[in-house]
Simulated assay, not measured.
Amino acid sequence: MLRALMTLALIVPLAAGCATTRGRTSVAVDVSKQSSGWESVATQEDLARINALPARWSSARAAVPKRLAKKLAAEGPLVQPDAALDLPALPPGSYRCRLVRFGGRAGFASFAPDFCYVEGDAKSLSFTKQTGTTLPGGWLHADTDKRQVFLGTFRTGGEKIAPPYGSDPARDVAGVIERVAPFRWRLVLTHPGKGALLDLYELVPVPPSSPAGSAR
């Protein structure tokens, strides 16, 4: 049943560019390209940004003011560039996703968690940020034994439909998913905002018994 729903979710966006399924926006991708690896889907700009993430990590951490160094350190492996563990794949379900932003004019900032949702199976996973003002959404692609690659687009809170990935460079978003502790992942974005050098989301599963766990 789940596989059938995912097939439908893929077919509809490909016909119309993008669609909203049960309140979650799916970003259109070429399914044949998705199966052949994320490098065949990513734009050249995002390929370069993903490859440049190690240098961005170094610059962002070095740019955090000394007065905020303890707050950065308190985040533990979440903000350590070499903290990625094996088995990075995000299990389907609801997540609390907390934005952490540092480096540049941002210094260091942590925001209240929003909610995100991962849907699919081992062959095809979509990621959607459901609440907040900036809403990345797209597909998770297998990469190494320590990371997945995220390719999608941004939409604003007032939009029901996001543009397809690759159709508007200003709206494209890419990043990597890494597991940093038991039941704790991060999505490191290649497009930091508001003067930051690095943006990442801490992703923590919502317990199934929690009312938020049924949020869509």
Rank of each mutant, 00 (worst) to 15 (best):
Thr156Cys: 04
Lys70Arg: 10
Pro77Asn: 09
Ala162Met: 12
Ala16Lys: 12
Leu68Tyr: 00
Thr153Ile: 08
Thr7Lys: 11
Trp185Ala: 06
Gly138Arg: 08
Asp172Ile: 01
Val12Glu: 10
Ala19Gln: 11
Arg61Lys: 08
Ala112Ser: 14
Thr21Leu: 13
Ile50Ala: 06
Ala55Lys: 13
Leu197Trp: 08
Thr20Gly: 05
Gly213Ile: 06
Asp46Ser: 04
Asp86Gly: 03
Pro91Met: 09
Asp121Leu: 01
Leu135Ala: 08
Val27Arg: 05
Val206Ala: 10
Thr128Gln: 13
Ser58Val: 02
Pro77Glu: 01
Arg24Cys: 10
Thr21Pro: 01
Gln44Ala: 12
Val118Gly: 06
Leu200Asn: 07
Leu78Glu: 00
Asp46Cys: 02
Gln34Glu: 05
Thr156Glu: 12
Leu8Ser: 11
Ser167Val: 00
Leu47Trp: 06
Ala16Arg: 13
Leu8Arg: 10
Gly107His: 01
Val31Lys: 07
Phe150Val: 05
Glu159Asp: 07
Val100Thr: 00
Ala84Val: 05
Ile11Gln: 14
Lys66Phe: 03
Asp168Trp: 14
Ala83Arg: 00
Ala55Leu: 11
Asp114Arg: 10
Arg98Ile: 01
Pro77Cys: 10
Met1Thr: 13
Asp168Val: 12
Met6Ala: 10
Leu187Tyr: 07
Leu8Asp: 14
Thr21Trp: 15
His141Arg: 05
Gln44Ile: 02
Arg67Ile: 04
Lys70Thr: 13
Ser26His: 14
Ala142Val: 05
Pro81Asp: 12
Leu99His: 05
Leu85Pro: 01
Tyr165Arg: 02
Tyr95Met: 14
Pro182His: 10
Gly37Pro: 03
Lys71Met: 07
Glu159Lys: 09
Val173Ile: 01
Pro208Phe: 11
Thr128Arg: 06
Val180Ser: 02
Arg155Lys: 15
Val31Ile: 03
Ala170Val: 12
Arg186Tyr: 11
Asp46Met: 09
Leu203Ile: 02
Pro81Ile: 00
Ala181Tyr: 04
Ala112Val: 11
Gly195Arg: 07
Phe108Gln: 05
Ser36Asn: 07
Gly76Arg: 04
Ala83Ser: 15
Trp139Ile: 02
Cys18Glu: 14
Pro81Gly: 05
Pro136Cys: 08
Arg105Asp: 15
